[in-house]
Design a protein around this nucleic acid. Structure first.
Lengths: 225, 225
DNA sequence: ATAGTTTTGTGATATTCGTCACATTGTATA
DNA sequence: TATACAATGTGACGAATATCACAAAACTAT
């Protein structure tokens, strides 16, 4: 499936800096691929041969740590996936898996490099994006390692509500085991703490659906552990 | 103090891609500044107005976490410092402090941006460097959060010996408190474990000097916690 | 040198959280 | 609908490590 990037509603900030001719290059050298929930989009250890742009659906970025799987972060559109790998290493340094049905653009790396060359605005936007990612990951790591588990769990729920779904009612997109992998704790602890939050009237759960009732409390827990 | 970049022995990989004229721009628009051990080179929260290149001396990159100071990593020359901040945010997102006497180039940001514009090779190298940093920080974070403290401490010592000083005998450049901030543990635990390592004949310490006697053991501890 | 400050060593105790075990519920598929 | 498999809830227990307390040592600056 090929499509005209100049008409695409999911275009990235960087791509918005391209002119018509450059967008045409992009249009002619990418394909849009659908992934089903659970599908692997990038697999750690395989060669990375394309630039990947997420235009629809939620994904998790995860790496095989020394002992267990670590979910680095969840990502939602519009965002490039795997840029660090593509430019910084030959093989993928992490895996990306679809948490919902996704649509993804595979962009030819030669074309992408050419665009970096041709458009200084484009490459500047990419540099900026990379810089923001890195700052974000410093902070995320500091939080994860310093906060108590309670605080980290609160952060995850706030991230769901404030960023990912932008609603205080949402379907939790990952299992408790995965939440554990995200905040470096065990499934059991996640379960216990969610029960606590529910008992304390902070959240209400119905199956996979969760409603945040008392966001103030969650924010306090996020701050004070 | 101004100097001719084309003669500088500390030039970065990216700068090596510049032509004579571009290097001249760089030469004319940067100053070299010396910092004493303990001096603050970048302070979190202040405006970032220059590109900073470390050409001599060891530094620590640290951020104020939710509870305590977190040392993100140690950095040695040749490397840019604070690139992420300069392009991704207006104010510095972390602090950088000299652990030894340092020499640092302050490069005018407009000139640097201009070089990014003019030289695709230069900007590509910068992109690559940013990508490598990010991959590295994913991995570092996964290690830190998953490994037991013993394993993390072993990693720090191996990093000193293999990367930073490239010798199995070195002067430990940071205090035990700082080692604790680096691997997210308490000063006391660091002290106890170093004593253990010494008792087990893995290291020998004489004041601030440390000698790694049994690197194999350290590597095993790094792997198995 | 010496007083003051920082760094380090070490014991006792408390806390957090992981692990194991098993019951229960939910979900997918034949 | 029945069956299997995945996800979740919950108790008991133990391991790792933080915290507190204080002493000793090392470093710094007047």
């Amino acid at each position: 499936m090929e499509s005209d990037c100049s008409l695409c509603p999911y275009i990235s900030v960087a791509e918005a800096k391209l002119d018509g001719c450059q967008l045409k290059q992009l249009s002619e050298n990418h394909i849009v691929v659908g992934f089903k929930k659970g599908d692997s989009i990038i697999k750690q250890g395989t060669y990375s041969t394309n630039i990947i742009f997420l235009r629809k659906g939620l994904v998790k970025i995860h790496i095989t740590g020394p002992y267990s799987e670590q979910i680095v972060k969840l990502a939602k559109p519009p965002t490039y996936l795997g840029l660090p790998t593509t430019f910084g290493a030959k093989v993928n340094q992490y895996s990306i898996t679809a948490l919902e049905d996704c649509e993804v653009c595979f962009i030819d790396i030669t074309v992408f490099r050419n665009l970096l060359k041709e458009s200084e605005h484009f490459s500047y936007e990419i540099i900026q994006a990379l810089c923001r990612y890195e700052i974000e990951s410093f902070r995320r790591c500091a939080n994860r390692t310093q906060k108590l588990t309670r605080g980290n769990l609160a952060d995850v729920l706030l991230d769901f509500a404030n960023n990912i779904f932008q609603s205080d009612v949402f379907i939790v997109p990952i299992s408790q085991t995965e939440i554990g992998n995200l905040i470096d704790t065990s499934r059991e602890s996640v379960s216990r703490m969610l029960s606590e939050f529910e008992k304390d009237g902070i959240i209400r759960t119905t199956g996979k659906q969760m409603e945040i009732i008392n966001k103030k409390s969650l924010e306090l827990i996020s701050q004070n552990g």
